[in-house]
Nucleic acid binder design. Sequence first.
DNA 1: TCAGACATGTTGCATTACGACATATGCCGA
DNA 2: TCGGCATATGTCGTAATGCAACATGTCTGA
Lengths: 112, 112
Amino acid sequence: MRHDDRERKKGASEMLVLALLEGGDRHGYEIARRIGERSEGALRYGAASLYPLLYRLERRGLIDGRWVEKAGQRRRRFYRLTPAGRRELTRLRSDWRRFLDAVARVAELGRA
Amino acid sequence: MRHDDRERKKGASEMLVLALLEGGDRHGYEIARRIGERSEGALRYGAASLYPLLYRLERRGLIDGRWVEKAGQRRRRFYRLTPAGRRELTRLRSDWRRFLDAVARVAELGRA
DNA sequence: TCAGACATGTTGCATTACGACATATGCCGA
DNA sequence: TCGGCATATGTCGTAATGCAACATGTCTGA
């Protein structure tokens, strides 16, 4: 992924993770995998971006994590959206929509 | 401007400035003013964000600056898009379009 | 058995954006 | 004429994010 993509992604990650958890509880690795899928490879997250982000979201009370260890399965930490997380997601979506529209308009990107 | 906006803006600034210079040579203060106008206040740039950004773009050869001092006018530095800047703008537009679409799709923002 | 996907984690660096501060001019109204 | 506001450029230090590189261990299929 190019440097510019790196900069572009700043700030979006939080919303993307929260949005994914809206569809059900997931663990970190799966969240990253699904973001990659849904974006058809346009958005990728590695461990060094993802796990610290999940801790931040948890510390802020937007998601709740719990360890799940089943016999014959690796240990995983599943996250669930908290009510505060849901509210934050709503807010983020609205802010991002405004931001995307503004960027598209100012840069004359078209199809905004 | 909230903290989140700050993060969101990362990476977009470069394209916004280049896009504005497409419409003609401008000086820093005017660039900031026009971005504010075009975005209806959604995007704002202060001196501490703008001037360092202009230097970076100039150092990278994407824009060309020249001082203009007229009697009865403050000194201003006008910038012009270089051919390399134009090429970079084209590339940035395409990358951003892809990025915006991906974010909208993954976060289910709607109206993408 | 060995490679590769799965799964989580840390350290340290590069980069960006900006609040606060600094400086100076032009212009308008009280 | 004096004060305040918009114009115009600039710097310093800080906060925050994203990631390459590294580290550890499990499960599965060839």
